[in-house]
Design a binder for these strands. Structure first.
Lengths: 201, 201
DNA sequence: TACAATACCACACAAATGTGTGGTTTGTCA
DNA sequence: TGACAAACCACACATTTGTGTGGTATTGTA
């Protein structure tokens, strides 16, 4: 069993300041960290950054200002997923936390923002797959997909549509998830694969 | 009627690139913008930034690298929502962006993290409302709800269930969205209201 | 005791980055 | 036609920022 990366109090202070600034959308420069924490030398700050990097908490790009990337992917934005809830307690002192919804990583997993895009769902053609009008579909950019995957496909008329990919005797076609829509046998190109659906009420 | 701040296509491209980079938590330098957009002079980029600032879309700090702040608020993690996609283009250039999915604000809106929790959906009792087994339901903590709202309710056996709230002649009961499930008339307590559904594939 | 890690500092230097001035071209509008 | 804004470029310069080297002091530990 490995023990979690131990941080000295000072190191934690540095990390927290970086977290704060990253949260504010402008990571600090080395000198800004020094000013905030009271270090008079840039070398000191670099020692800390080196330590934090060795402990796997951040990455940096060479010769790029403010280029600090926290690997922990901002552990703040998590929502607990609850199984059962204790009865008497008024304020949801949840007993069984099954996991966490990570707001940042939810859609992306290990993907970058370049690898996905979102599509507003129009119509009810996928209603039997639980995808309703107005839902937002998060699509991972791909040019291929497997049988039964739900894909974003580009049709000949330059329209993008969300359908299920089916193969029948070696040929692919698109199927709606709604008996009222016929399958699509025309030419199309897969541009991505559905990885997440979001619906707001 | 006021017209929205007019942006030229080029200006919008610049803005979108900045949005993207701010979303990635490292705003671009002037030269990085120029490289991406194909400008050979820093002066050109500064002209654009000046224009965007005059239109009230961003602020900058003097002599600070990457210090671009988008005024359009909460520019945290945004995924572009794309309408139509140019046919030939392979890599989905941020050409026609209709809007953004704001990862942070998606579930929460103006709520804090304390005001919501998540529920793992089990079973198919809400399938006709497009809520499937395995979905994650984001619930806003409330002790009341309106007729027809989908709510998280605490039953007598300490189970939490997701159902539609119905009132009939002044009395509330719970209804599944699946003809195979009978309505629930037993005692229950509303603990929250469904605000978002997320499904991962 | 010797060694390693932590916790600092000073300072020089190079690279990145922002600023400023002065241009050219194109199209629109009065 | 002239004025003006958008949309560019080149280049010098100042400032910011990252890098690198070489120190000192303290503490725990093998």
């Amino acid at each position: 069993m490995k023990n979690k990366p131990f941080l000295t109090p000072k190191q934690e202070k540095v990390l927290n300041f970086i977290r704060k600034r990253v949260g504010e959308r402008l990571p600090p420069t080395i000198r800004e960290i020094g000013e905030e924490l009271g270090f008079k030398s840039t070398g000191t700050v670099r020692d800390y950054l080196k330590a934090l990097m060795q402990k796997g908490l951040m990455r940096r790009m060479n010769n790029k200002s403010r280029a600090i990337e926290l690997t922990e992917c901002s552990g703040f934005n998590k929502i607990p997923i609850i199984g059962t809830i204790m009865a008497g307690k008024p304020n949801l002192a949840y007993e069984e936390i099954q996991g966490y919804v990570d707001v940042d990583n939810l859609f992306l997993g290990r993907l970058g923002f370049d690898d996905v895009f979102a599509l507003g769902v129009k119509g009810d053609s996928m209603i039997d797959a639980g995808i309703l009008d107005g839902d937002v579909a998060i699509i991972k950019k791909l040019t291929y997909a497997d049988n039964n995957d739900i894909v974003a496909a580009l049709l000949d008329n330059n329209e993008v549509t969300l359908k299920r990919l089916r193969s029948k005797s070696g040929k692919f076609h698109l199927e709606a998830a709604n008996v009222n829509y016929p399958p699509i046998f025309e030419e199309f190109k897969v541009i991505g694969k559905l990885i997440t659906v979001i619906r707001k009420y």
